[in-house]
Simulated scan of single mutants.
Amino acid sequence: MTGEHPATDGGPIAEPTNQVSVGAFEFERGGQVDLDVAYETFGDPADPPVLVAHALTGSQYVTGSGPEGIDGQAAGWWSEVVGPGRPVDTENFFVVVANVPGSCYGTTGPASIGPDGEPYGPDFPAVTITDWVRAQARLLDELGIETLYAVVGGSVGGMNAIEWARTYPERVERIAAIATAPRVDTQNLALDSIARRAITQDPDFQGGAYYGSPGPTDGLGLARRIGHVQYLSKDSMENRFGRRAADRVIAGVADPTAEAFPYRDVASYLDYNASTFVDRFDANSYLYLLRAMDEYDLAAGQGSATDAVADFDGSILVLSYTGDWQFTVEQGREIAAAFEAAGAEVTFEKIVDDYGHDAFLARPETVTGPLDSFLDGQTVNDPSELRVSP
């Protein structure tokens, strides 16, 4: 199967529990593969269907525990939001979560085995968020689902959600776009370009053809450190770490001054998260997915973002955080304004919270109230403000 992933010296990536072939798939930027889509479903297929779109390095294992070899941030990443009695209630909704093309959790990507018996590696076609949506639609066709009650996503998963309104407006009634934006701003484009360079300049990257070896773990770890800086606010970092010295040491190459000064807690946090990430994610996949996020623009090929969603006549919830400098409140308002001008029912909520971009994952209680009301059919036209204690 094309979704099979090879083992590297760092260990195999676990096989998905559910996977379906959707046949030949033409990518938006060119290229074709026989695409397998890995997915999970939760609840009764007779209930209204809700699609949950995962964030950049997430998986289809949105709630509960994943299979052996999939844990940590890759499984149960939204268990407080999706599950029995949660806002995305698996006792009332049939929940579908699909791993996106280019990832490494079972949907065909660069680590998958190609027709020649070798991993695709850098020969895998470039992917876009529109490709993710088209692949999800093909999966829904296989599952016999024509119209979605809702699409829910955070971060780049929120971009995935709003893209449904542009690509398949007739197939979705409600969209919840959380901690997201219509496009990545210039500062974050710059940081993401540094993250990519960290991977590609690692000597073990080997032009992307590193399978069967440990691969560019140093470069991937550096890229992930940059990501974690983007995911937290300035205030959040100060409150959590300050200038404290760490009480543990993560092995690594020390600079010449390291013995003279403390190893700080914030550095330990970044080093730890980098070390766990390289054990669970493929470097090529990170490059592909990061590029898909960076190149997304809701208004691309249209006169405006409003024109892009003109055919969507459903409801949308846009949820933004004051401490999120990756996808700002202003960018959330831009999404809301585009949909409102297009005639959709819009609920915009600003959450006053200093955690940063990852608040929608780290503080799920900030999501549950607004999302629960929205999925229950309640909408408001005036922006509201929620305050959450630091």
Rank of each mutant, 00 (worst) to 15 (best):
H5L: 13
E334V: 11
P87L: 11
G332R: 05
V156N: 08
A299S: 13
E146D: 13
Y149K: 09
I113P: 05
R197F: 11
V50E: 01
G11P: 00
A190W: 10
D376V: 07
E385M: 12
P383R: 10
T107G: 04
Y288G: 07
C104P: 01
V37F: 08
D376Y: 14
A336M: 10
E26Q: 12
Q187G: 09
D71T: 03
I194C: 06
L148P: 01
R240F: 04
I250E: 07
G212Y: 05
N99G: 03
R197A: 14
R240M: 06
F281Q: 08
T108P: 00
P48C: 03
N381E: 15
P370H: 02
A195Y: 01
S268C: 13
R387D: 07
Q136V: 10
E173L: 00
Q19R: 13
G377Y: 05
G43C: 12
Q302K: 13
N92Q: 15
Y269A: 05
A75W: 07
S304M: 03
A165N: 04
Q206D: 12
A245L: 11
A300H: 10
F261Y: 10
F348E: 03
V266C: 07
Y263R: 12
P370I: 07
G157S: 06
V388H: 12
A24T: 11
A176E: 03
A342Y: 00
G343Y: 01
V172G: 06
A195G: 01
W164L: 10
V367I: 08
A150Q: 02
D353P: 02
V33C: 06
G72H: 05
E349H: 14
G117K: 09
Y168M: 11
D116S: 13
E163T: 12
A283F: 02
I316W: 08
L51T: 10
E238T: 14
D89L: 08
T366G: 09
D218T: 08
G69Q: 03
V309Y: 07
Q60P: 00
E26G: 08
A359I: 08
A308F: 02
R291D: 14
E4R: 15
E4V: 15
